[in-house]
């Protein structure tokens, strides 16, 4: 048992060391992170991002998406790469408080922007209320989509509060209300392959009720 408890290499440290990137690159059709390219014509640009409150000056190939900048350059691997085409929502982060797909935007387009990733919300010892609610309600199985779900969920509650309508809003001129229909519709950009949707909705409802 001593050996096991002393075994400190976590799945996360393996991911950061790049083993997973190599494995991913070997699978056809799966988007691999973009490394510093050596092709001719490669352009490098400086950009300073504020990530989870910390200014991060970077020198990046112009092709680097915000997602790859976070994962590959800043080693913030909490934000996940799913489809890399804006279809799954695993890469959802908050930019100046608004949720976006970090895979469909270039890092250089975010000079001076304030970016919040899952790492900026809570820690293992002090979970953000939304993280705690996901745990309490079993709002995941494998957990891969969870960082994106949580970032998206926080923005959803803010969007409803700000009066932004959705496809589920019955009366365009009235302020939208927090209902399960509204949450389901607004969370449709976050896919959960494990199908934890009903528990995800319960977690979000709980946070909304606590805040209200």
């Amino acid at each position: 048992m001593e050996n096991i408890t002393g075994f400190t290499v976590s799945r996360r440290s393996i991911l950061v060391s790049g083993t997973a990137s190599i494995a991913v690159s070997a699978v056809p059709g799966v988007a691999a992170p973009q490394r510093h390219a050596k092709e001719s014509g490669t352009a490098v640009t400086r950009v300073a991002l504020t990530v989870n409150g910390k200014t991060q000056p970077l020198e990046l190939d112009t092709r680097t998406t915000l997602l790859d900048a976070l994962r590959e350059h800043l080693k913030l691997t909490g934000t996940k790469k799913g489809c890399d085409h804006g279809q799954c929502g695993a890469c959802t982060v908050l930019v100046d408080g608004r949720r976006i797909n970090s895979c469909l935007t270039l890092a250089v387009m975010h000079e001076g922007d304030s970016i919040t990733t899952i790492e900026g919300l809570g820690t293992a010892d002090k979970l953000h209320p939304m993280q705690a609610a996901f745990v309490a309600h079993d709002g995941y199985q494998c957990g891969y989509c969870t960082p994106g779900q949580i970032c998206s969920a926080l923005a959803v509650l803010d969007e409803i509060k700000a009066g932004i309508p959705s496809h589920a809003t019955a009366d365009l001129e009235a302020d939208p209300r927090i209902t399960t229909d509204e949450i389901r519709e607004r969370m449709s950009g976050n896919i959960c392959r494990c199908g934890a949707y009903s528990n995800i909705v319960e977690a979000i409802v709980e946070v909304a009720e606590t805040r209200a």
Binding site: N101, S152, G189
Partner: peptide, 15 residues
């Protein structure tokens, strides 16, 4: 308004 919120996802509409 109706057409806009019928399209894409919240993340995409923000961009």
């Amino acid at each position: 308004s109706r057409a806009l919120v019928a399209g894409a996802s919240g993340q995409l509409r923000n961009k």
